[in-house]
């Protein structure tokens, strides 16, 4: 028996919105520790990794580890039937063919349940080493979204350069070129969540497809902060912490000049 209850059901809506344009089908693994999902996009250029700890749920029970093969677009359709203030409960048997979703309005006046058919999904699970990155940038997620959106109008590839002073995002295209530099905040600059913080061992410059960075920014509503982890010649990690429950991280392979 698997049962997971989230008072803030809208969180689940936001999570699926953040994944479904990149990944169509995915296995969500449920264990005593919580929910995890790892899935690559169809071209195997990027990967999305979701982690929701059991302690972040209002109620969590998982007697036996199970894998839920989900069509994310279909799950998104069902979650659209939930109100934004609804409590959402997920339920499945030990060898499930379906996932039950129950939505309860805050005053308990409306209770609905839906069953989503599960699928057998063959996926390749990639082993991602726990690595120390040369640069870690923490910045407001809305700022990152704006930069990616603005630069995508000009070209396809973004050069991200991180130094101690700041992070530079550069693009060039047929119409011209552009740069946006965000500088490290000084300690006195306002709210923690509005700050740009850079931890750097050595400067890093990497090239990335803006199209994919744009997919990742669908996670912006999940939190005020995004973290970018970079080292030379390896995939970037774009991490959105989800307050009190876990995180969603995207890995994107760089473009390399050959």
């Amino acid at each position: 028996m698997f049962e997971a209850r989230l008072t803030e059901g809208s969180l689940l809506k936001k999570i699926i919105e953040a994944i479904k344009d990149l990944v169509q089908e995915a296995n969500v693994d449920c264990s005593e520790e919580g929910l995890t999902m790892q899935a690559m996009d169809a071209s195997h250029v990027s990967l999305c990794s979701l982690n929701m700890r059991h302690g972040g749920f209002d109620h969590y029970r998982c007697d036996r580890s199970i894998s839920l093969g989900l069509n994310l677009a279909n799950l998104g359709k069902i979650l659209k039937c939930a109100g934004n203030d609804d409590v959402v409960t997920l339920k499945a048997e030990d060898e499930p063919d379906t996932l039950t979703l129950m939505f309860e309005s805050p005053n308990q006046e409306r209770i609905s349940d839906f069953e989503l058919k599960l699928m057998d999904i063959e996926t390749e699970h990639l082993g991602i080493p726990n690595e120390e990155y040369k640069c870690t940038i923490s910045m407001p997620s809305g700022e990152f979204q704006r930069i990616v959106r603005d630069l995508a109008v000009i070209g396809e590839t973004c050069i991200i350069t991180c130094t101690k002073e700041g992070v530079k995002f550069s693009v060039s295209g047929d119409l011209g070129n552009g740069n946006v530099t965000v500088r490290q905040s000084s300690a006195a600059d306002g709210d923690e969540k509005d700050q740009v913080k850079i931890q750097m061992e050595e400067p890093v410059t990497l090239n990335f497809a803006l199209r994919y960075l744009g997919f990742f920014t669908k996670a912006t509503p999940l939190g005020s902060t995004v973290k970018l982890h970079m080292s030379p010649d390896v995939p970037i990690v774009v991490e959105y912490p989800i307050d009190g429950i876990g995180s969603i991280s995207y890995f994107l392979a760089p473009k390399i000049d050959e």
């Binding site: 990967l47 990639l126 590839t157 090239n207 995939p235 890995f251 392979a253 760089p254 473009k255 000049d257």
Partner: peptide
Amino acid sequence: AMQQKRLDSFFKPS
């Protein structure tokens, strides 16, 4: 020219 790498060339299947 710039070439888009795939993730499989960085991470191995587990």
